[in-house]
Design a protein around this nucleic acid. Structure first.
Length: 386
RNA sequence: GCAGGGAUUCCCGAGUGGCCAAAGGGGGCGGGCUGUAAACCCGCUGGCUCAGCCUUCGGAGGUUCGAAUCCUCCUCCCUGCACCA
């Protein structure tokens, strides 16, 4: 029974029988999951392996969360056609710090061990690195799909990128992992971990992969594509983004995220709303989920202004140049703002604005709206002044 | 090292002296429609208080009345050859 929980939704559990053997050891297993810090967000898709880690924790095992602060300096090329940008130390540091908090929305804190891989990677000597590189061959590396594709397509592959799987594999050595979790795109790296562990005289880890979550655009969820739902995004944002998925993604999302089957006769709208509530509630609690749904109903379904609209002081002049106000209030260029006006997307208290210049008295105290989701209340008094 | 090819607006990708703020697609934004921030249809998509002006086509110079387009140098990428104790 517990084995089924541990491997729910798993795509690969390798080698065959390996997990059973590990469990038979009768001690808490060390279950590793490495995460890169290239982006400041962990999204719900990346939360899937975290959910697996949680399942292990619920059975008394230890989750070892590895923050790839050092590996990020190289950039994992998995599934990418080009090298990731190298982040500055400050950015890496800033991202890493928020990860623990984000992951805690899913993990059991008391059974989580958090490690930064700079802890051991930074101290390796050149000779140590050479020893590591001897374990695998170029041909083995080029077997990896994305490397193979890039090589065949004449795309550049830097030597440092080839080192990535080895570094990640060495993490497994350093933390003595029993099991390593990851998305299916990580299969190669996880298996490399087995090989490297063996070369260092350790019992190789068991590899468990989970499916990649397909987002509303049909692509795998990814922070760099912008089709993601971050675990720490504001409630309304999480809710709205969830509502973007098409109905036929619902069964998959139910299975992978909620870990239940969507009843075949379920009403799509109700099911999607329930899913959105669940996602928000996991991150922010029931109350926030309720508020997010209310916001969605009001703003998106009914097209009305939300309860809380931020204030925006009007400029001093008698006649107000609307594009300038829009640009300033919503962080757009005045050209973009002009286009919005030209397209009839700008309203003041539900009346469509057609003039670029409007007398100040017709604006004061009213709600300015640009498009469906941008609202601001125009006020007389500049903030912080009296 | 040698020889070719390449770098275009957020991305991909046309454009090879004026008709170019630059085709087309993607993405994004907006409007319509909708249970939906889905799908679909239509429009917009460098900046600027905008019938005009200003700044873009890897970088720096140059030719020309006029350059993304021609020339020189530089940077980066790709391919082939050479190298391979």
């Amino acid at each position: 029974m517990s084995l089924a929980d541990l491997t729910r939704n798993a795509v690969h559990v390798l080698p065959e029988g390996g997990l059973e053997a590990k469990l038979a050891l009768g001690r808490p297993l060390r279950v590793k999951l490495g995460i890169d810090v290239t982006s400041p967000d962990i999204h719900v898709g990346r939360g899937i392996p975290l959910q697996r880690m949680r399942a292990f924790q619920d059975e008394g095992h230890i989750g070892v969360l590895i923050i790839g602060d050092y590996t990020t300096r190289i950039g994992d090329p998995s599934g990418r056609s080009s090298e990731r940008p190298i982040l500055s130390d400050e950015e890496i540091e800033r991202n890493a710090q928020t990860y623990v908090e984000q992951a805690s929305r899913i993990l059991l804190a008391e059974r989580t061990e958090i490690r930064f891989n700079s802890e051991w990677l930074a101290g390796l000597s050149f000779a140590d690195v050479i020893r590591l590189t001897r374990i695998m061959t170029v041909a083995q590396m080029l077997e990896r799909d994305d490397f193979a594709a890039r090589y065949a397509g004449g795309q550049p592959i830097s030597i440092s990128e080839l080192l990535y799987p080895l570094m990640q594999a060495y993490d497994s050595v350093a933390v003595r992992a029993d099991v390593e979790l990851g998305g299916t795109d990580q299969l190669y790296n996880l298996l490399a971990g087995r090989e490297v562990m063996e070369a260092y005289g350790l019992e190789p880890q068991v590899v468990l992969t989970t499916p990649l979550l397909v987002s509303w655009d049909g692509e795998k969820m990814s922070s760099s594509l912008g089709n993601n739902i971050p675990l720490t995004a504001p409630p309304e944002e999480q809710f709205g983004r969830t509502m973007r998925i098409s109905d036929d993604l619902l069964p998959e999302w139910y299975r992978l995220l909620r870990e239940v089957e969507l009843p075949p006769d379920a009403d799509p709208l109700e099911a999607k709303l329930a899913l959105a509530r669940w996602i928000v509630a996991r991150s922010h609690g029931e109350e926030a989920a309720r508020a997010a749904e209310e916001h969605f109903t009001r703003v998106v379904r009914e097209g009305r202004a939300p309860d809380e609209v931020p204030d925006k002081p009007l400029p001093e002049s008698e006649v107000v140049h609307v594009p300038a106000v829009i640009a300033d209030a919503f962080g757009l260029s005045t050209s973009e703002a002009r286009r919005l006006v030209a397209q009839g997307a700008v309203r003041v208290d539900d009346a469509v604005v057609t003039d670029l210049d409007v007398p100040r008295r017709e604006l004061a105290g009213r709600v300015l709206r640009a498009g469906k989701r941008r609202f601001v209340r125009l006020v007389e008094e500049p903030e912080g002044r009296r």
